[in-house]
Design a protein around this nucleic acid. Structure first.
Lengths: 186, 186, 186, 186
DNA sequence: AATGAATGAGGGTTCATTCAT
DNA sequence: GATGAATGAACCCTCATTCAT
C-alpha cells in the first residue's frame, strides 16, 4: 500500500499528512466542530487546501477514519493464522481497542457523510472477527448455542463502544467478561 | 400569568406533546434530517411553534431523549428491591435494550447539542446499574476481581451499543454472554 | 395560468415578486453580477429568502427569463390565426423585439445554469415562428428557395440579437430588411 | 532586460502560443469550463505559467478573442477596395461568419471579463462594415431609407448571431435574405 | 398564541492569483 | 523561468431563530 501521494510534490504530501492528522485529532475530540475550516486551522493550512487535497470533506474524513481502521485489518489478517482462535480473538480485540482508544473517540459529527473506504474496512474487520469466531466455535471454545453471525455483531458493536469510551482498565474488564462469557458453560 | 410548566393552556400542552412525539419519531430514523422544520412538519405544527414550545431545538431534543430515558430510570429503581441482584440486572438490561431499540436508533445528527437533562438521566441510570452491580458482587454472583465502577461503565457502554444496533436476537446473545461473563469463574 | 403563489402567504407572494423583478432587472444589465446576494440586495431581501422562495438560484433565473418569454408565446399563438402570415410574422417579431428590448438585454452570466422552463418556452416560440414561416411560404409570400427550418432559425437568432442590442430604430430597420429579404425575388 | 513583447525568450514565446491555442480551443467549446487550470492542462503547461505569460486570465482571453477578430479586420480592409461595395460586403460577411463559426462558438463563461483589445477590434470591424455600407448606399445598391449607422449595427449584431449559431446552411440563408433586403425595393 | 416566511451566520466548494520549490 | 500547490475571497445553499401576519 502506501501508494498515496505518488507523484505529488513534497509539500503536497506534507500538507496531505497535516490535514489527515488534523482531521484525526478532531475526530478524537467529542465536542469538536469537525468543519473544514476547523481542520484547516488546526493543520495550519487554508480552507481551500484541505478540500483540494482530497477532493471534498467526505473524502478527507474517509481517509482519516480509514487510516485508523486499515492497520487493524492487516493485524487481524496476521492473527488469523496464529495460535488458538479464541486467543487470537482476544489478542485482536485487545489491540483493536487499544489502537482505537489511543487514536480517537469517533467524533459525533460524521452523520450524513459518505465514507466508502471506511465502510469497506469495517466490513473487512467484521469478516476477520467472523472467521475467528467460526474457528473458535468449530474448535469448541465458543458456546455452540451462539449463532456465529450474532456473535460477530455482538463483538463488533461492543468492542467499538469500549474503544470509544477509552476508560482506563475498561478494555481489560471487557476482555475478561466477554471472552469468558463466550466460552461454553461448564 | 401562571407559572411555567403547570398551568399551560390546553393547546400549548397539546403542542408540546405533538412536538415531542415528532422529535422522538425522527430520532428513531437514522437517516432522517432532524431539522426544526422536519419536526414541525411531522407534528403538524409551524416551525415557530416548535421552537417557542421548548425555547430552542436543543431543549426539545433534550426533552425527547429524556422522555425515553426517564421511564428506564424509574423501572430500574423498582427492580432494585426485587429478586436477586444479578437477575434484576439481567431483567433491567433486557428491558432497557428492548425499550431503547423499540423507540430509537439514535439519530446521527445530534452532534454538538447540549442535552443537560439527558446527561442527568444517564447518570441516574448508571447509578442504578452501579447499585445492582455492587449488590450482586457483595452477594458473590459477580466475580470479585472486577472493579464495580469498571463493571458499571462496561455494562453501560455495551448495553447502549447493543440497543442502538437493534439487531434481532442480539439482545439475547448479549445478555447470555455478558451475564455469564460477569459470574465468578468456576 | 397565473397559479403561482397559490396558497402562499401574502408577504411570500410579494417577496417572490420582488425577487423576480430584481432578477429581471439584473438580467438586463450586461455587466451586473447576477449573484444571489446582488439579487437579494436589489430586492431588499435577505440572501436566504430568494433561494428559499424558488428552491435555488437556477429556478429563480429560470422563472425570471420564463416570465419574459411566456407572454410572447401567448401573443404568438394569438397572431397565428390573424391576418396574412407574413404580416402576422412581422407583427410578432415587432412585438417580440419591443418587449424583450424593454425588459432585458440578457445578462451574460447565465452560463452553466439549468433553465428547463426557459428552454421549453424557447422551443414553443420557435414552433410559432416556424408555423408562421410555413404558412407564409405556402401562400407564396416567402421565397421558395428557403428551407423553412433554416428560415426559422435565422429569424430566431437574428431577432433575439436585435432585441438584445436594444438600439433605437434598430427594430424597424431589422423588420424592413428582413421581411423584404424573405419575400420572393421579383 | 529586453522590451516586453519583443525579445522574449524562445520558450516564453512558445508558451504564449500554447496558452493562446488552448484558450482558443476552449472558447470554441460551449460547455467547457474555461478556467485557468483547464486552459493550462490543455496547453500542457502549469497554471502559473499561463497567468504569468499574459498577466491575468482576462488578458489571455482578450488576446485569444482578438486573435480571432484581428485577421477579419485586415481582410475587411483589403475588401474595401475591391469590387462593388455590396458584393464586397457580402463576401466580407461570408468570410466573417465562416471564420467565426469555424473557430469558436463563443464560450458562455466570459461574463464579467474586461476585454479592451477585443472591444477595439470590434469597433474596427464595425468601421469597415460602416464604410462598405456607406459606399454601397452612395452607389444606390442599398435602400436610401436606411440610416447607415443603423444598417451597420443591424449587420454587426445579426452577423455575429448567425456566426454563433453555426448552423449548416444558415450563413447562406442569412446572406441571401439580408443582402436582398438591403437592396432598394423595386 | 400559532403560523410560516425572512433572516443571516456558517457550511462546503470553486477558482484566479501568488509563491515556494 | 516553469511549476503546481496554497491561498482566500466569493459563491450557493442550509437551517435555527425571529417576527410580522
Amino acid at each position: 500500500m502506501s501508494s498515496e501521494g505518488r507523484g505529488l510534490r513534497a509539500d503536497a504530501v506534507r500538507n496531505r499528512r497535516l490535514a489527515l492528522e488534523a482531521a484525526t485529532a478532531l475526530l478524537a475530540e467529542s465536542g469538536a466542530p469537525l468543519t473544514v475550516e476547523a481542520i484547516a486551522t488546526r493543520a495550519g493550512l487554508g480552507a481551500g487546501t484541505v478540500v483540494r487535497a482530497f477532493g471534498g470533506k467526505g473524502a478527507l474524513i474517509d481517509a482519516a477514519v480509514s487510516g485508523l481502521l486499515g492497520p487493524m485489518v492487516e493485524r487481524g489478517r496476521d492473527l488469523l493464522g496464529q495460535g488458538r482462535p479464541l486467543d487470537a480473538l482476544r489478542a485482536f480485540l485487545a489491540e483493536l481497542i487499544a489502537f482505537q482508544s489511543a487514536h480517537h473517540g469517533v467524533n459525533d459529527h460524521l452523520g450524513g457523510l459518505d465514507l466508502p473506504e471506511t465502510a469497506r474496512l469495517r466490513a473487512e474487520l467484521e469478516a476477520v472477527v467472523r472467521e475467528l469466531v467460526v474457528r473458535a466455535r468449530a474448535e469448541g471454545s465458543i458456546r455452540a448455542d451462539l449463532d456465529p453471525g450474532l456473535a460477530t455483531t455482538l463483538i463488533g458493536e461492543t468492542a467499538f463502544a469500549v474503544a470509544r469510551a477509552a476508560s482506563p482498565g475498561l478494555a481489560e474488564a471487557y476482555l475478561a467478561v466477554m471472552i469468558d462469557g463466550l466460552r461454553p458453560p461448564v
